[in-house]
């Protein structure tokens, strides 16, 4: 079954853009939360991670801070 993938990002951050591209390249569907525009999502991200750096990627509940390709691959099983 497809995994639930969320990404908390800002529109301008280079690593966010890279992370989203990486997911697209691997045909992974994801929900994007723009934490610059969506305060509720920003609060949720800060609560989950205790920090404010973007991107944050959540794969079936596993939270990964930063564009950590290896961890993301592992969590996705690709």
């Amino acid at each position: 079954m497809a995994k639930t993938v969320k990404i908390y990002s800002t529109a301008t951050c280079p690593w966010c853009i890279r992370a989203k591209e990486f997911l697209k390249e691997n045909a992974v569907e994801f929900i994007n939360f723009d934490v610059g525009l969506d305060q509720a999502a920003a609060d949720e991200m800060m609560k989950k991670t205790g920090q404010m750096g973007v991107p944050v990627i959540e794969i079936d509940g596993q939270v990964i801070v930063g564009f950590d390709k290896e961890k993301i691959k592992q969590a996705l099983g690709i």
Partner: peptide
């Protein structure tokens, strides 16, 4: 660092709306 302090305005700026 990453708890309000950042070295990348272009990345984290929008979080400080």
């Amino acid at each position: 660092k990453n708890r309000g302090l950042t070295y990348c305005a272009i990345c984290d700026g929008p979080l400080f709306s």
